[in-house]
Design a protein around this nucleic acid. Structure first.
Lengths: 218, 218
DNA sequence: ACCTGAACACCGTTCAAGT
DNA sequence: ACCTGAACACCGTTCAAGT
């Protein structure tokens, strides 16, 4: 075929198709040959648009970061002392939801923002909002980091789904408290949802205590 | 050579060598051929001891889980109401330290315990201790899950190291609050350490508030 | 039982050749 | 500029053959 009049590929089409493939069949299913076949071209064609396969996956990751709502960080006043908490909560919920819609790409996202624009926008928004709300710079950095730990950890894999669905795997002699563990995977979503909400609330309660101390000494 | 009098391989030797290879060069460096070469045998020999490459990696992951200290959960009395907190803190610190010593295997650990004995022992210990300390079963499950989210997230990759070390990557027009972000990777360990401690403390403070409420209504 | 080399069906990436 | 097929140096895994 050689070069067609109208390009067969575009970075957008590659990223969209790659995301669909990752979502449907997992990271391992994305080979350059397989992705190219899905796009109706031959494997090496992709290298006209991306330098490496990893760049394609980074672009997919960034397209997921871009789905996280950041609007709650606009107009966050200084000194109110309660708004940052609500904003952080809503952001965390939106962040997790975006990742849960595309769980297979989370390992790539977990590497950090790197040079990905949507990842950087997200880091910028949460850090800027915390500083704007009255947190000292170092603490605002910590908040960005610890929220990331928690959200990434909660999205990286299901807690409940990490246990096998087979009662015989849990010998009471070895694991005296895991008698019900085989039921975990059945109620996966609810258990993970509940743990996420419990942890998020504990985190925010704890941070509120700390914020009160910061304000006292200021 | 065919079969030697004394076996060249053992599951232990394979796991130890695989762990060293993962630690030194990363997960991607572990191919069956490369690992076999490191062990002085040919690639297919490994299949006499493990069914798949993944089973080898699972064994490596479990050997890391086994390094997590669980002794703080012994003799945790019911009703004291303050001991579970200290135990949870010390456990989290030990857990994170073990993972940070072998960060490259964390993605495998993050899948959950599955059928890995050390992973199951760990889950059994923390859940049993929380129930023993007076937490209702459903909340004890949530605690096991949310601590896992936080610890895995904190070990999966450095927060600070996720930002590139290059001031020009952070255009102030795009990211008004990331003017200092290029300095993050330099002070990586300290920033991540601090964020972990801050988050852990917030989590425990928040859980303590919740525990007080549980005890009230009981 | 435990090792070997050969083989199968894959990989990511490079490159000269085509238009 | 943007596609192609061929090629290189890899993969994980199976299997018959050796002792």
């Amino acid at each position: 075929m050689a070069r067609p009049r109208k390009p067969l590929l575009s970075t957008d089409r590659i990223v969209t198709t790659a995301r669909e493939l990752v979502d449907a069949e997992g990271l391992a299913a994305v080979s350059t040959r397989r992705l190219a076949a899905e796009l109706g071209v031959s494997g090496p064609s992709l290298y006209n648009h991306f330098r490496t396969k990893d760049e394609i996956l980074e672009a997919v990751a960034d397209s997921v970061s871009a789905q996280v709502d950041l609007s709650m960080f606009e107009n966050l006043g200084h000194g109110a002392g309660r708004d940052w908490r609500t904003a952080l909560h809503d952001w965390a919920v939106s962040y997790r939801a975006a990742l849960r819609n595309h769980p297979n790409i989370v390992p790539v996202l977990a590497r950090g923002p790197g040079r990905r624009p949507a990842g950087l926008r997200l880091a910028d928004a949460v850090y800027g909002a915390m500083v704007g709300a009255g947190w000292p710079a170092a603490q605002a950095t910590s908040i960005g980091a610890l929220m990331r730990y928690f959200i990434m950890g909660s999205a990286l894999g299901s807690f409940a789904g990490g246990f096998v669905d087979d009662a015989s795997a849990y010998d009471p002699a070895d694991y005296p408290h895991l008698g019900q563990a085989h039921l975990l995977s059945e109620r996966q979503e609810k258990i993970d949802e509940r743990a996420f909400e419990t942890g998020l609330r504990a985190l925010l309660d704890g941070l509120a205590e700390q914020f009160a101390r910061v304000k006292e000494t200021a």
